[in-house]
Design a protein around this nucleic acid. Structure first.
Lengths: 160, 160
DNA sequence: ACCTGAACACCGTTCAAGT
DNA sequence: ACCTGAACACCGTTCAAGT
Protein backbone atom coordinates (compact mmCIF):
# COMPACT_ATOMS: atom_id res chain seq x y z
CA UNK A 1 0.00 0.00 0.00
CA UNK A 2 3.05 2.25 0.38
CA UNK A 3 3.13 5.13 -2.09
CA UNK A 4 6.05 6.08 -4.27
CA UNK A 5 7.02 9.50 -5.51
CA UNK A 6 5.41 8.73 -8.86
CA UNK A 7 2.18 7.84 -7.09
CA UNK A 8 2.21 11.25 -5.44
CA UNK A 9 2.68 12.98 -8.79
CA UNK A 10 -0.11 10.90 -10.33
CA UNK A 11 -2.45 11.69 -7.46
CA UNK A 12 -1.62 15.38 -7.71
CA UNK A 13 -2.38 15.35 -11.43
CA UNK A 14 -5.73 13.68 -10.80
CA UNK A 15 -6.60 16.37 -8.27
CA UNK A 16 -5.40 19.10 -10.64
CA UNK A 17 -7.49 17.82 -13.51
CA UNK A 18 -10.57 17.34 -11.36
CA UNK A 19 -10.50 20.55 -9.30
CA UNK A 20 -8.04 22.95 -10.89
CA UNK A 21 -4.83 24.51 -9.61
CA UNK A 22 -6.62 26.65 -7.04
CA UNK A 23 -7.82 23.58 -5.17
CA UNK A 24 -4.79 21.40 -5.79
CA UNK A 25 -3.55 21.62 -2.22
CA UNK A 26 -1.15 19.30 -0.48
CA UNK A 27 -4.02 18.34 1.80
CA UNK A 28 -6.26 17.36 -1.09
CA UNK A 29 -3.52 15.42 -2.80
CA UNK A 30 -2.93 13.59 0.46
CA UNK A 31 -6.58 12.72 0.85
CA UNK A 32 -6.70 11.59 -2.80
CA UNK A 33 -3.95 9.12 -1.86
CA UNK A 34 -5.68 8.15 1.39
CA UNK A 35 -2.84 9.46 3.48
CA UNK A 36 -2.11 12.27 5.97
CA UNK A 37 -0.79 15.57 4.56
CA UNK A 38 2.50 15.17 6.36
CA UNK A 39 3.14 11.89 4.55
CA UNK A 40 3.69 13.76 1.27
CA UNK A 41 6.81 15.35 2.68
CA UNK A 42 8.45 12.01 2.72
CA UNK A 43 8.31 11.99 -1.10
CA UNK A 44 8.73 15.63 -1.97
CA UNK A 45 10.45 18.51 -0.12
CA UNK A 46 7.70 21.06 -0.80
CA UNK A 47 4.74 21.96 -2.98
CA UNK A 48 6.83 23.85 -5.52
CA UNK A 49 8.85 20.74 -6.26
CA UNK A 50 5.70 18.70 -6.63
CA UNK A 51 4.38 21.24 -9.15
CA UNK A 52 7.62 21.02 -11.12
CA UNK A 53 7.32 17.23 -11.24
CA UNK A 54 3.73 17.58 -12.44
CA UNK A 55 4.87 19.97 -15.16
CA UNK A 56 7.50 17.48 -16.34
CA UNK A 57 4.88 14.77 -16.55
CA UNK A 58 2.44 16.97 -18.49
CA UNK A 59 4.99 17.63 -21.24
CA UNK A 60 6.72 14.25 -21.03
CA UNK A 61 5.10 12.97 -24.23
CA UNK A 62 5.94 15.99 -26.36
CA UNK A 63 8.38 15.13 -29.14
CA UNK A 64 10.10 18.08 -30.77
CA UNK A 65 11.01 16.24 -33.96
CA UNK A 66 12.21 18.33 -36.89
CA UNK A 67 9.37 20.84 -37.35
CA UNK A 68 9.20 23.78 -34.91
CA UNK A 69 5.57 24.53 -35.76
CA UNK A 70 4.55 20.94 -35.13
CA UNK A 71 6.47 20.95 -31.87
CA UNK A 72 4.66 24.12 -30.78
CA UNK A 73 1.30 22.57 -31.55
CA UNK A 74 2.20 19.38 -29.70
CA UNK A 75 3.29 21.33 -26.65
CA UNK A 76 0.09 23.33 -26.73
CA UNK A 77 -2.04 20.20 -26.96
CA UNK A 78 -0.23 18.57 -24.07
CA UNK A 79 -0.86 21.56 -21.82
CA UNK A 80 -4.49 21.95 -22.88
CA UNK A 81 -5.11 18.28 -22.11
CA UNK A 82 -4.93 18.87 -18.35
CA UNK A 83 -6.96 21.45 -16.46
CA UNK A 84 -4.70 24.46 -15.71
CA UNK A 85 -1.88 22.55 -17.40
CA UNK A 86 -0.53 25.66 -19.13
CA UNK A 87 -0.28 27.51 -15.83
CA UNK A 88 1.59 24.68 -14.17
CA UNK A 89 4.04 24.18 -17.05
CA UNK A 90 4.62 27.88 -17.73
CA UNK A 91 5.39 28.68 -14.10
CA UNK A 92 7.72 25.75 -13.69
CA UNK A 93 9.46 26.60 -16.97
CA UNK A 94 10.05 30.24 -16.10
CA UNK A 95 12.18 28.94 -13.26
CA UNK A 96 14.46 27.06 -15.62
CA UNK A 97 14.64 29.46 -18.52
CA UNK A 98 17.37 28.16 -20.76
CA UNK A 99 17.66 24.67 -19.45
CA UNK A 100 14.48 22.80 -20.16
CA UNK A 101 14.52 19.77 -22.41
CA UNK A 102 12.13 21.29 -24.92
CA UNK A 103 13.89 24.66 -25.12
CA UNK A 104 17.20 22.90 -25.73
CA UNK A 105 15.80 20.63 -28.42
CA UNK A 106 14.13 23.58 -30.14
CA UNK A 107 17.35 25.58 -29.93
CA UNK A 108 19.25 22.87 -31.78
CA UNK A 109 16.55 22.75 -34.41
CA UNK A 110 16.61 26.53 -34.96
CA UNK A 111 18.45 29.11 -32.82
CA UNK A 112 18.47 29.78 -29.06
CA UNK A 113 16.67 33.10 -29.51
CA UNK A 114 13.97 31.64 -31.70
CA UNK A 115 13.54 28.68 -29.35
CA UNK A 116 12.97 30.94 -26.37
CA UNK A 117 10.69 33.33 -28.23
CA UNK A 118 8.62 30.48 -29.56
CA UNK A 119 8.35 28.81 -26.18
CA UNK A 120 7.31 31.98 -24.37
CA UNK A 121 4.71 32.63 -27.01
CA UNK A 122 3.31 29.10 -26.76
CA UNK A 123 3.11 29.33 -22.98
CA UNK A 124 1.51 32.76 -23.02
CA UNK A 125 -1.04 32.01 -25.67
CA UNK A 126 -1.97 28.65 -24.20
CA UNK A 127 -2.31 30.06 -20.69
CA UNK A 128 -4.59 32.78 -22.00
CA UNK A 129 -6.57 30.26 -24.05
CA UNK A 130 -7.09 27.96 -21.10
CA UNK A 131 -8.11 30.79 -18.75
CA UNK A 132 -10.42 32.22 -21.35
CA UNK A 133 -12.12 28.89 -21.99
CA UNK A 134 -12.60 28.26 -18.30
CA UNK A 135 -14.16 31.69 -17.85
CA UNK A 136 -16.42 31.02 -20.84
CA UNK A 137 -17.50 27.68 -19.40
CA UNK A 138 -18.61 29.36 -16.19
CA UNK A 139 -20.38 31.93 -18.32
CA UNK A 140 -18.34 34.96 -17.26
CA UNK A 141 -17.12 35.54 -20.78
CA UNK A 142 -18.29 35.00 -24.33
CA UNK A 143 -16.33 32.18 -25.90
CA UNK A 144 -13.80 33.34 -28.47
CA UNK A 145 -14.12 30.75 -31.25
CA UNK A 146 -10.90 31.87 -32.91
CA UNK A 147 -8.28 31.00 -30.33
CA UNK A 148 -6.86 28.01 -32.22
CA UNK A 149 -6.53 30.03 -35.41
CA UNK A 150 -5.14 32.98 -33.47
CA UNK A 151 -2.46 30.67 -32.11
CA UNK A 152 -1.50 29.43 -35.56
CA UNK A 153 -1.29 32.94 -37.00
CA UNK A 154 0.93 34.18 -34.16
CA UNK A 155 3.13 31.15 -34.68
CA UNK A 156 3.47 32.01 -38.38
CA UNK A 157 4.40 35.56 -37.45
CA UNK A 158 7.30 34.26 -35.36
CA UNK A 159 8.47 31.49 -37.68
CA UNK A 160 8.16 33.48 -40.90
CA UNK B 1 -8.91 58.40 8.30
CA UNK B 2 -11.37 56.52 6.12
CA UNK B 3 -9.74 54.66 3.26
CA UNK B 4 -10.82 54.82 -0.35
CA UNK B 5 -10.56 52.13 -3.00
CA UNK B 6 -7.43 53.81 -4.36
CA UNK B 7 -5.87 53.71 -0.90
CA UNK B 8 -6.46 49.97 -0.82
CA UNK B 9 -4.78 49.52 -4.20
CA UNK B 10 -1.84 51.68 -3.10
CA UNK B 11 -1.46 49.73 0.13
CA UNK B 12 -1.61 46.46 -1.75
CA UNK B 13 1.11 47.65 -4.15
CA UNK B 14 3.33 48.63 -1.23
CA UNK B 15 2.91 45.18 0.27
CA UNK B 16 3.54 43.55 -3.10
CA UNK B 17 6.74 45.48 -3.68
CA UNK B 18 8.00 44.88 -0.16
CA UNK B 19 7.13 41.19 0.28
CA UNK B 20 6.26 39.73 -3.11
CA UNK B 21 3.07 38.19 -4.47
CA UNK B 22 3.32 35.14 -2.25
CA UNK B 23 2.92 37.25 0.87
CA UNK B 24 0.55 39.83 -0.56
CA UNK B 25 -2.43 38.55 1.38
CA UNK B 26 -5.63 40.40 2.13
CA UNK B 27 -4.67 40.23 5.78
CA UNK B 28 -1.30 41.86 5.19
CA UNK B 29 -2.78 44.57 3.01
CA UNK B 30 -5.32 45.25 5.76
CA UNK B 31 -2.63 45.55 8.39
CA UNK B 32 -0.61 47.82 6.09
CA UNK B 33 -3.64 50.09 6.07
CA UNK B 34 -4.17 49.73 9.81
CA UNK B 35 -7.53 48.11 9.37
CA UNK B 36 -9.22 44.74 9.90
CA UNK B 37 -9.13 42.24 6.97
CA UNK B 38 -12.89 42.38 6.64
CA UNK B 39 -12.76 46.13 6.01
CA UNK B 40 -11.17 45.53 2.58
CA UNK B 41 -14.34 43.90 1.36
CA UNK B 42 -16.07 47.21 1.59
CA UNK B 43 -13.82 48.49 -1.21
CA UNK B 44 -13.28 45.40 -3.32
CA UNK B 45 -15.42 42.28 -3.86
CA UNK B 46 -12.52 39.83 -3.68
CA UNK B 47 -8.77 39.39 -3.97
CA UNK B 48 -8.86 38.69 -7.70
CA UNK B 49 -10.44 42.07 -8.35
CA UNK B 50 -7.86 43.77 -6.17
CA UNK B 51 -5.09 42.09 -8.18
CA UNK B 52 -6.66 43.31 -11.44
CA UNK B 53 -6.76 46.88 -10.09
CA UNK B 54 -3.11 46.55 -9.07
CA UNK B 55 -2.26 45.36 -12.59
CA UNK B 56 -4.02 48.37 -14.11
CA UNK B 57 -2.05 50.68 -11.90
CA UNK B 58 1.28 49.03 -12.73
CA UNK B 59 0.80 49.60 -16.46
CA UNK B 60 -1.10 52.89 -16.13
CA UNK B 61 1.88 54.98 -17.21
CA UNK B 62 2.71 52.97 -20.30
CA UNK B 63 2.18 54.98 -23.49
CA UNK B 64 1.98 52.94 -26.68
CA UNK B 65 2.83 55.86 -29.00
CA UNK B 66 3.71 54.99 -32.57
CA UNK B 67 6.57 52.50 -32.20
CA UNK B 68 5.65 48.91 -31.24
CA UNK B 69 9.20 48.10 -30.11
CA UNK B 70 9.29 51.14 -27.84
CA UNK B 71 5.89 50.24 -26.45
CA UNK B 72 7.11 46.72 -25.68
CA UNK B 73 10.13 48.07 -23.86
CA UNK B 74 8.01 50.53 -21.88
CA UNK B 75 5.62 47.79 -20.83
CA UNK B 76 8.50 45.60 -19.78
CA UNK B 77 10.06 48.39 -17.71
CA UNK B 78 6.77 49.14 -15.99
CA UNK B 79 6.35 45.51 -14.96
CA UNK B 80 9.95 45.11 -13.83
CA UNK B 81 9.63 48.22 -11.65
CA UNK B 82 7.44 46.40 -9.13
CA UNK B 83 8.33 43.14 -7.43
CA UNK B 84 6.39 40.31 -9.14
CA UNK B 85 4.81 42.96 -11.36
CA UNK B 86 5.01 40.78 -14.47
CA UNK B 87 3.15 37.97 -12.74
CA UNK B 88 0.38 40.26 -11.58
CA UNK B 89 -0.06 41.96 -14.95
CA UNK B 90 0.24 38.79 -17.04
CA UNK B 91 -2.33 36.90 -14.99
CA UNK B 92 -4.80 39.77 -15.01
CA UNK B 93 -4.31 40.26 -18.75
CA UNK B 94 -4.89 36.62 -19.64
CA UNK B 95 -8.36 37.13 -18.23
CA UNK B 96 -9.13 39.89 -20.67
CA UNK B 97 -7.37 38.66 -23.78
CA UNK B 98 -8.51 40.91 -26.56
CA UNK B 99 -9.85 43.78 -24.56
CA UNK B 100 -7.04 45.44 -22.70
CA UNK B 101 -6.14 49.05 -23.41
CA UNK B 102 -2.60 48.21 -24.48
CA UNK B 103 -3.57 45.31 -26.74
CA UNK B 104 -6.14 47.52 -28.46
CA UNK B 105 -3.73 50.40 -28.97
CA UNK B 106 -1.09 48.03 -30.31
CA UNK B 107 -3.63 46.43 -32.62
CA UNK B 108 -4.44 49.79 -34.17
CA UNK B 109 -0.77 50.49 -34.63
CA UNK B 110 -0.10 47.16 -36.34
CA UNK B 111 -2.54 44.22 -36.63
CA UNK B 112 -4.59 42.34 -34.03
CA UNK B 113 -2.49 39.18 -34.47
CA UNK B 114 0.78 40.99 -34.12
CA UNK B 115 -0.48 42.91 -31.10
CA UNK B 116 -1.45 39.75 -29.29
CA UNK B 117 1.73 37.88 -30.22
CA UNK B 118 3.86 40.78 -29.11
CA UNK B 119 2.00 41.18 -25.83
CA UNK B 120 2.19 37.50 -24.96
CA UNK B 121 5.89 37.50 -25.72
CA UNK B 122 6.51 40.57 -23.56
CA UNK B 123 4.56 39.05 -20.66
CA UNK B 124 6.28 35.70 -20.94
CA UNK B 125 9.79 37.02 -21.27
CA UNK B 126 9.36 39.56 -18.50
CA UNK B 127 7.83 37.02 -16.14
CA UNK B 128 10.73 34.68 -16.76
CA UNK B 129 13.23 37.50 -16.35
CA UNK B 130 11.75 38.60 -13.07
CA UNK B 131 11.60 35.07 -11.66
CA UNK B 132 15.09 34.34 -12.82
CA UNK B 133 16.49 37.49 -11.22
CA UNK B 134 14.76 36.79 -7.96
CA UNK B 135 16.14 33.27 -7.90
CA UNK B 136 19.59 34.67 -8.67
CA UNK B 137 19.31 37.19 -5.85
CA UNK B 138 18.60 34.43 -3.37
CA UNK B 139 21.53 32.55 -4.85
CA UNK B 140 19.60 29.57 -6.23
CA UNK B 141 20.62 30.35 -9.77
CA UNK B 142 23.52 31.92 -11.59
CA UNK B 143 22.47 35.30 -12.94
CA UNK B 144 21.97 35.35 -16.69
CA UNK B 145 23.51 38.67 -17.75
CA UNK B 146 21.91 38.51 -21.16
CA UNK B 147 18.22 38.76 -20.40
CA UNK B 148 17.80 42.34 -21.61
CA UNK B 149 19.53 41.56 -24.89
CA UNK B 150 17.63 38.30 -25.21
CA UNK B 151 14.40 40.27 -24.89
CA UNK B 152 15.42 42.71 -27.62
CA UNK B 153 16.43 39.92 -30.00
CA UNK B 154 13.16 38.06 -29.52
CA UNK B 155 11.30 41.30 -30.14
CA UNK B 156 13.19 41.76 -33.41
CA UNK B 157 12.28 38.24 -34.41
CA UNK B 158 8.59 39.04 -34.01
CA UNK B 159 8.65 42.55 -35.52
CA UNK B 160 10.90 41.72 -38.41
C1' DA C 1 11.08 3.56 4.43
C1' DC C 2 6.66 5.21 4.96
C1' DC C 3 3.26 6.99 7.65
C1' DT C 4 0.22 9.14 11.77
C1' DG C 5 -1.25 12.80 14.97
C1' DA C 6 -0.84 17.00 16.66
C1' DA C 7 0.58 21.35 16.32
C1' DC C 8 2.05 26.21 14.37
C1' DA C 9 1.35 30.13 11.88
C1' DC C 10 -1.10 31.35 8.52
C1' DC C 11 -5.10 32.00 4.50
C1' DG C 12 -9.91 34.31 1.94
C1' DT C 13 -14.38 35.43 2.99
C1' DT C 14 -18.89 36.33 5.51
C1' DC C 15 -21.75 38.64 8.58
C1' DA C 16 -23.86 40.86 12.42
C1' DA C 17 -22.94 44.86 14.77
C1' DG C 18 -21.02 49.44 15.70
C1' DT C 19 -20.23 54.76 14.38
C1' DA D 1 -20.08 54.86 4.19
C1' DC D 2 -16.56 52.64 6.54
C1' DC D 3 -15.11 49.69 9.90
C1' DT D 4 -14.73 45.99 14.03
C1' DG D 5 -14.92 41.34 16.03
C1' DA D 6 -15.75 36.90 15.69
C1' DA D 7 -16.28 33.08 13.19
C1' DC D 8 -15.87 29.34 9.25
C1' DA D 9 -13.47 26.42 6.47
C1' DC D 10 -9.42 26.12 4.88
C1' DC D 11 -3.82 26.43 3.86
C1' DG D 12 1.82 24.61 3.82
C1' DT D 13 5.00 22.73 6.76
C1' DT D 14 7.37 20.57 10.90
C1' DC D 15 8.25 17.07 14.07
C1' DA D 16 8.07 13.48 17.42
C1' DA D 17 6.42 9.06 17.34
C1' DG D 18 4.80 4.68 15.45
C1' DT D 19 5.43 0.25 12.23
Amino acid sequence: MANTRDDVVSGALRVLDAFGLEFCSMRRVASELGVQPSALYHHVPDKQTLLALMADRIVAGVEVGDDPAKAAHALREAMLAVRDGADVVATASAFRLGDSRIENELAELTTPDLARTLLLYVFGHTQATQMHRQAAQIGILAEDPDLDASFARGLDLILR
